[in-house]
Simulated scan of single mutants.
Amino acid sequence: MRALLLLVSVACGFVSASEPPAVTVGNIRRVFHNGEHNAFTDLVRFRDKLYLTFRSCPDGHMVFNTASVIIMCSSDEGATWQQVHRFSVKDRDTRDPHFLVFKDRLFVYAGTWYSGPGKIEPKDYDMNKMLGFAVSSDDGVKWTDPTMLEGTFGLYIWRAAEFGGKAYLCGRRKPGYDIGPKGEGEKVQSLMLESDDGLIWKKRAFFQETGGDETAFLFEQDGSVLAIGRHGGGKNAQLIRSKPPYTEWIRKSLERAIGGPLVVKWGDSILVGGRHTTKENGAKTSLCWLVGDQVQEFAELPSGGDNSYPGFVALSPTRALVSWYSSHEKDADGKTITAIYLAELSRQQRP
């Protein structure tokens, strides 16, 4: 069975080391808290600087038109950060920001729920009114206004990736844009969206025809794609693979649910991150290696309650930064805060 799993990995262009490297987690610190609900992080390197993005909302986690996206920059490998941009979209909750370096520009993509001029109740959340937006910059200083992404109406967009001169997004939607009450769960489809310019999008493929949810893509040099997909309805996450032209997809259930999944290649290993919930410890932000067709946890980051959605950027072959949000701390008055955190990862160099 082990040999068969290895053959599947090789066929799709991915080889996971049988003995993943040991990792030390250090320099854990809170890097942002402004009294608002801060969540859904991502990290990237662009023009020799690091960038961190997340949603911030004075009214909380749910759908509010007061939400906005903050972009921060570091010139010293993450030691200090300065805010360089903040944007919102009128009458929409702007959330789940993700970076993409594409055609010499830094894009920040965000999914937006329609909220109208005020708060709406969860029963009135309508995926059919979702719409993707982006801002971009060629220097990290001057940013465009939020631009509506053509082809994303009715789609909840998520993490972005680039391969072969094209950009890719995860987009999820109701089959046939079905009209009905919230609670879609198993009915939601996940699509791979494709773009030539980062702004105009079209469907490339279905990769989850039911139970679609947040999905992160990882491309190899031959165009093989490996994805970690959260599975709608709280089921275990899926390991999803395909090769060009992405007409056939291999799906395998992992041994845990993963909220806000991350998948990146670091050296010769594949790192998977996201929220892991157990009865004993509750919800925690977890980091794992992908070994064969399963994940092996190597770190549980300080976290609790509302948390996860990690970002990652390599500083060297043996050092990296990871970002996440969490509500495990309280302020001086004993009130729970939801803040942004960073930690440094150090891994053993293979001989």
Results as ranks from 00 to 15, higher is better:
Asp104Leu: 12
Gly259Ile: 02
Ser75Cys: 13
Leu321Met: 09
Leu193Ser: 01
Gly259Ser: 06
Tyr246Asp: 04
Val263Asn: 06
Tyr114Thr: 02
Gly229Asn: 11
Gly304Cys: 10
Thr215Ala: 06
Arg30Met: 14
Val264Lys: 15
Ala161Lys: 00
Ala339Val: 03
Asn27Ser: 11
Cys73Val: 07
Ser88Gln: 06
Gly212Leu: 08
Arg95Phe: 04
Thr144Ile: 03
Gln294Val: 03
Arg2Gly: 12
Val135Met: 07
Met127Pro: 01
Ser346Gly: 06
Phe153Leu: 10
Trp289Ile: 01
Asn281His: 14
Phe107Ser: 06
Ala3Tyr: 06
Leu191His: 01
Leu287Lys: 09
Lys265Gly: 12
Thr215Phe: 05
Asp213Met: 11
Val313Ile: 04
Glu297Met: 14
Pro245Trp: 10
Asp333Ser: 15
Gly78Leu: 10
Leu345Asp: 01
Leu193Lys: 01
Glu77Thr: 07
Asp42Ile: 08
Trp81Gln: 07
Arg319Leu: 15
Ser316Gly: 08
Val10Trp: 13
Leu155Phe: 00
Val322Cys: 13
Tyr168Cys: 00
Ala227Ile: 01
Asp197Gln: 14
Val31Trp: 05
Ile340Met: 09
Thr318Ala: 13
Gly305Arg: 12
Ala237Glu: 00
Asp178Cys: 11
Asp139Ile: 09
Glu214Trp: 04
Gly274Leu: 07
Met127Asn: 07
Asp96Lys: 13
Ser316His: 08
Ala283Tyr: 03
Leu287Asn: 06
Thr336Ser: 10
Gln221Val: 06
Ala237Gly: 09
Glu209Thr: 08
Val135Pro: 02
Lys174Met: 10
Ser18Pro: 08
Pro58Cys: 15
Leu239Thr: 03
Pro117Tyr: 13
Ser9Phe: 04
Pro117Arg: 14
Glu329Ile: 05
Val31His: 06
Gly267Thr: 07
Ser269Ala: 11
Ile120Gly: 07
Lys123Trp: 09
Pro317Gln: 10
Glu162Phe: 12
Asn281Ala: 11
Thr66Leu: 05
Asp333Ala: 15
Asp59Arg: 15
Arg95Cys: 08
Ile250Lys: 06
Pro58Gln: 13
His33Leu: 12
Met148Val: 04
Thr277Val: 07
Gly154Thr: 01
Leu155His: 00
Lys174Gly: 03
Phe206Pro: 01
Gln221Ile: 04
Val188Thr: 06
Ala160Glu: 00
Asp306Ser: 10
Asn27Gln: 10
Asp42Ala: 15
Arg204Met: 08
Arg159Ala: 07
Pro117Gly: 12
Ser136Cys: 15
Asp333Thr: 06
Pro21Ile: 05
Gly311Thr: 04
Glu77Cys: 15
